[in-house]
Design a protein around this nucleic acid. Sequence first.
DNA 1: CGCCCCATGTAAACTGTTACATGATTTC
DNA 2: GAAATCATGTAACAGTTTACATGGGGCG
Lengths: 178, 178
Amino acid sequence: MSRLTGTLGHALLGVLAEGPRTGYALVRHLAQSIAYTWPASHSQVYPELARLREAGLIRERAAAPRGGRVYELTDAGLEEVRRWLRETEPSRTVRDESALRLFFLWLLEPDEAADYLHGEAERARATLAEFQRIAAQEDPDTPKTRAYRTALDLGLRSARARLAWAEDALRASGRRSR
Amino acid sequence: MSRLTGTLGHALLGVLAEGPRTGYALVRHLAQSIAYTWPASHSQVYPELARLREAGLIRERAAAPRGGRVYELTDAGLEEVRRWLRETEPSRTVRDESALRLFFLWLLEPDEAADYLHGEAERARATLAEFQRIAAQEDPDTPKTRAYRTALDLGLRSARARLAWAEDALRASGRRSR
DNA sequence: CGCCCCATGTAAACTGTTACATGATTTC
DNA sequence: GAAATCATGTAACAGTTTACATGGGGCG
């Protein structure tokens, strides 16, 4: 039982703690919220669900309409997510390709570098608008929605910081190129 | 020639554009700056250097003291980094495990959740302090150092945003738990 | 001579992406 | 009956991490 699963496995357990779901519904739910912090495609989710079931962390309930398989969390599964949250440290590894590229902008002509920063500003604006759209949705005030709002707030603040950074960097590069 | 390399390969080309280096020196340099956006261990770097050499993007110069191999960028290599920067879009994939966990905080007791947010605040403070230490270092004003400063500025702003977020989230959770 | 740091590699395991493949039900 | 959407899987490949493995050279 409770064999070690990676981050994706724990994320699936966490979502299943909200209630039983099919793999398909799980994937859709991930795409709407959790994918901003941990994207996963269906081809990764289905095999992972099979592993979680073998490990006794989830179990299959009655089948859904079109060959759908409904999974629900077991007691061991709930214990495992909670243990993960309490006792293990989150990985500090961050991979951000658009930030990586900044180190190499000096290899481009000034106006090409400005183009890149302009793109970054546009992206940040789009991300911010998307998060604002989600924030505008009304929802009841429960522990779960409060947790989701906390995550969303981090996204909003990060997007704003990134937008402000890009606009400043663009101004600074613009002033130099003239 | 110029076979497609992944992000790591392009990062190595970008650093080698600063001048010839051994694999070892490359790894050390990455750890000090670029690893904040794209970490890489020596076991990944050495094979990648071999691939870049085979692709004609870098070449080996005279050997260094203790079995060290000095690599330098070829013209094709420089062209390839520039092409990568100009013509390809950076991947938008972000994986942030500590943000992922926020979605599941409602599964913990309020004080356990507050412990987690406290840890996040501490981490953000440490990151911010580290970036401030780096920012305090003096360096000449060249295109390269300007690019590095732009990257650092993004790190500083992100760390500040994250710290402000964590402190606010902590305050909000504290108010509720009393 | 032993320890530490320089320096380079390989192997196995794990994680993640892209492409392939298939079938059921609803909607037009 | 054709197209879209629901629904699940496998296979091949690419990228990453961790552990294993080895040797050179300087310093006390």
